[in-house]
Amino acid sequence: MSLKRKDLLGMADLSVEEIQLILQTADSFKEVSGRDIKKVPTLRGKTVVNLFFEPSTRTRTSFELAAKRLSADVINFAASTSSVVKGETLLDTASNIEAMQADFIVLRHPSPGAPGILARSLRASVVNAGDGSHEHPTQALLDLFTLREKKREFKGLCLVIVGDIAHSRVARSNISALVKLGAEVRVAGPPTMMPRHIEELGVRVFFNLDEALKGADVIMMLRLQIERQGIALFPSIREYSRIYGLTPERLRLAERDVLVMHPGPINRGVEISPEVADSGASVILDQVTNGVAIRMAVLYLLSAGR
């Protein structure tokens, strides 16, 4: 079993076997990350370019650390979409970067499908680090890795994703993966944040959070995009927080050994109360740690066969 692909664009493309391989490979890299010398020479001489059209310190740092622990050279390229909309196309920008002999391009872009454009045209491996509301596969993989560490089995696991499902790439990637792996996936949020036909992806839709939490083994809170433009999806942060915020009282509706996850950065007191974020149920920091191992695994597995 190996990953016979050049790029990682989304969880929708991956088979269960491929997902398992990535998780298994990440086990080894987690071990490497636990050493005193957290560096292996595997990608020595390779160049990883973090091409970020949206600021995201944590994802970029995680990829940077992953690449450096594999001994690759890392370049961070922050671009603004506004300049790109006006002039140089995404493909032009990326072709220029590839011309500098990049082996990997890690792309964060606000537009769904953008990594696919690069993947089709470039020789370099393209890793999707989040494309609009479409996918964020390494986030889903690190979530799976964390779940696997804590819960062992995906089958039969009851998991609730809470928040703005419509605009969340984290939700899409996780739904796609978890349904494939046999978990029971629920989504909860107001109808204004629920995309149409989402139930056809194999999830159950709840507008009432308390109902959704009953029997939950895992609660995955999404970050509320307070800064989102246009006509508001909810009348006030206060009201949202009251109806969809995760509080200690709500947490008690779930299973006793429930895990609380969050892709970060969290809005304390908005979607999640500080008590819950800092409680024993929270695995938010494990997610961050595991992110590096997952990204090392992805870079390693994609580095073959080019």
Binding site: E135, A166, R196, H197
Partner: peptide, 21 residues
């Protein structure tokens, strides 16, 4: 249809595209 680029249906939902209902 503000911001929409594809029919608001299953495919737009899966691809994370803004829908035009």
């Amino acid at each position: 249809s503000e911001g929409g680029v594809a029919h608001e249906g299953l495919v737009a939902t899966e691809l994370g595209l803004h829908g035009m209902p």
